Simulated scan of single mutants.
Amino acid sequence: MEARQLAVGGAWAFTPERHTDDRGLFTSPFEADVFAAAVGRPLFPVAQASTSVSAKDVVRGVHYARTEPGCAKYVHCPRGRVLDIIVDLRAGSPAFGQWDAVELADHAAVYIPAGLGHAFVALEDDSTVCYLLSRGYVPADELAVSVHGLGLPLPTTPRLSERDRVAIPLERALAGGLLPTY
């Protein structure tokens, strides 16, 4: 498995080896030893695993969990292709508002520590994203900032949920004290 650090502090991309033969494919989108060597600590205890399937041009995010404790994510794409986007939402961070993106396909994965925002754009129909989460879903703690105004690479007509369509701009979330701190 190959690991590389992304431009947003603490985020990592992982590309697993693929083993194929006439029967099909075998891959391991998570390997604890590679993760720990790259990130410098073991993966968080997994509290929830989730999956989403999206049509082309669906944009999900920018989502984050209210801190403390926040929610770390290990995300991989076993089917289709997505442009996975990590945004630094930590008030006081030298990289505040900056983002990095990595295309996920063929089981490639990304690690998003607590405090960073997460979004993705489905580049194909039936793109599947699987998540390992450090905590379970708590609706009151799940927040979103608007994908607009951040300079993100969005489709011409993004398909957004109602929650994401009405999400507040990053500046308003900062002014309202709704963001994690650095």
Rank of each mutant, 00 (worst) to 15 (best):
V145C: 01
A119D: 01
V110D: 00
R135W: 10
E142D: 15
Y64P: 10
E17Q: 15
P94Q: 08
G61S: 06
V147Y: 00
A144H: 08
A109R: 05
S134C: 09
D33M: 07
D84Y: 03
C130E: 07
D84H: 08
S127W: 00
A109W: 06
K73L: 08
E124K: 05
K73H: 09
V147R: 05
A95I: 08
D141S: 11
G136M: 14
D125P: 11
V145K: 03
Y131S: 12
T15W: 05
D22C: 09
G117H: 06
T128P: 00
I86G: 00
R18G: 12
G10Q: 08
S93E: 07
H19G: 09
A95H: 11
V102S: 03
K56H: 03
R79Y: 10
R60M: 07
F44Q: 03
S127M: 09
E17K: 14
A91R: 06
P94M: 08
P78E: 03
P78S: 01
G149V: 07
V138T: 15
C71N: 12
Y74G: 07
D57H: 15
V75M: 04
H19E: 12
Q98F: 00
G117I: 02
D84G: 07
S134L: 12
L132C: 13
E124S: 10
E142W: 02
S54V: 12
P139I: 10
V62T: 12
A47G: 15
V82R: 00
S52C: 11
A109G: 13
L133W: 04
S93K: 08
R60W: 09
G97T: 09
V110I: 13
T15C: 12
V8G: 02
R41L: 10
V147A: 10
I112M: 02
I112N: 02
L104V: 08
T27L: 09
R18K: 14
A49L: 14
R90H: 14
V58H: 00
L143F: 10
V39M: 03
Q48A: 14
D22Q: 13
A119P: 04
D33K: 15
P78M: 04
L132Y: 13
D33I: 07
G10F: 06
G70W: 05
A105I: 01
W12A: 03
R81G: 00
